[in-house]
């Protein structure tokens, strides 16, 4: 099973990616700071993460809908900003490291 590392307030936690997305996996492991208010539909910008390391090329491109929501994040948007609900879990994302945005909603 692929593994994902979440950095929350500087502390790293590595978990098995047993959810359908990086957001869903975070919820399953009670990773703090992922609110996911809209349930994973790219509608709320409360699962904002910064992709810090790992197989970046394996991640899907930012869709039109995700782009719109990334304009709405409370923590500043950066080059590596993503909505974690739009990052599906697949064997290819093994080793992904994301930093959870401090402010979500």
């Amino acid at each position: 099973m692929p593994q994902i590392t979440y950095i929350v307030d500087g502390a790293s936690t590595t978990v098995d990616a047993d959810g359908s997305s990086v957001m869903h996996t975070a919820l399953r492991h009670d990773i703090a700071g992922i609110v996911a208010e809209c349930g994973g539909n790219a509608m709320c910008a409360t699962c904002h993460v910064y992709v810090e390391n790992g197989p970046l090329a394996a991640l899907p491109a930012i869709s039109v809908a995700e782009e719109e929501m990334l304009e709405c994040t409370l923590s500043p948007r950066a080059e590596n900003s993503r909505l974690s609900c739009q990052l599906p879990v697949a064997p290819t994302i093994d080793g992904l490291v994301v930093r959870v945005a401090a402010e979500q909603a």
């Binding site: 349930g39 509608m43 709320c44």
Partner: peptide, 20 residues
Amino acid sequence: TDHLGFGAGPHACVGMNLAR
């Protein structure tokens, strides 16, 4: 939060933030 009251996927309710 993952309920289907607003649907899901690309056609999930576009007005959900206002409704909430």
